[in-house]
Computed example of a mutant assay.
Amino acid sequence: MFQNRLVNIMLIMLMALTLIGALTLVLYTQFFQQTNAHEEPTIDDVLRVSAETEEITTNLLSNNIVRTQFVVQLDNRSAKDEFTKRDFQVKNIIIQELSDLRGSDLQGSEGIRGLEEQVRLRINEVMQDGHVEKVYLKNLVIQ
C-alpha cells in the first residue's frame, strides 16, 4: 500500500476503530434504546382490534330485564378473529354474569366497572390466541 510501514499500521488501526464505533452505534440503537411500548394505543389501533357484541337481552336476579351491548378490545388481530368465532360462548358468559346480578348491582360506575372486569376475566378463560385487554359497556337498559 504505502511505502512507510507506520502509515499502514495507523490506517489499519483507524479503520478498525471506525468499524468498532459503527458497530457500537448500531447495537446501541437496536437493543438499548427504550421503545414506546408503554405508550397508549391510538384510537385507530384500538378499533382495529376491537369487536362488538350483539345486543343481549336477559333477566336479572331481581326479576328485571336488561339489554346490554359490549365492545371488547383484544390484544391482536388473531384474537379478534377468535373472539368473533367464539360469539356463542361470549354471549353465554355475559348472560351468566348478568343473571347473577340485581338491578341495584348495575347502578353507578362501580357496578358497571365490576361487570366489565368480570366479563373480561371470564372471556380470557376461554381465549387461546390472545387475550381481552378491556371491556367497554356500550349500551345498558334496565327495565
Rank of each mutant, 00 (worst) to 15 (best):
Q69V: 14
E40W: 05
R48G: 06
N8R: 11
I112M: 03
I65L: 11
L23P: 01
E110L: 07
E55G: 06
D75Y: 13
L121M: 12
F88N: 09
R48H: 10
V126H: 09
T24E: 06
K85W: 12
T29V: 12
L115W: 03
I43L: 06
E40S: 01
F88G: 05
P41R: 00
Q69E: 08
S78Y: 15
L140G: 02
I20R: 00
G130V: 13
A79G: 12
K80C: 14
Q34R: 10
M15E: 01
V72Q: 09
R102K: 11
T58W: 06
F32P: 02
Q89D: 09
S99K: 05
M1N: 07
M127H: 08
R48M: 13
R86I: 15
I20T: 07
G114R: 12
M1Q: 07
Q118W: 12
M127V: 14
E39K: 06
M15N: 10
Q107E: 08
E97F: 02
L60P: 03
T29M: 10
I94C: 00
D44H: 05
I94F: 08
T35C: 09
V66T: 01
Q69A: 10
T35V: 10
L106R: 02
H38Q: 06
N63G: 14
V7F: 15
E82G: 12
I43W: 07
R122A: 07
L121F: 11
N59Q: 13
N64F: 15
L115Y: 01
N59P: 04
I112D: 02
F83D: 04
N124D: 07
S99W: 12
R67H: 12
R86F: 15
T58E: 13
Q107M: 13
Q34H: 10
P41C: 00
T68E: 03
H131I: 15
L115A: 01
T18A: 11
G21P: 05
L19D: 03
N8I: 15
E117G: 07
I142S: 10
S50L: 13
I94L: 01
F32G: 00
D87C: 15
I142H: 09
G111H: 08
S109H: 07
N76K: 08
S99H: 05
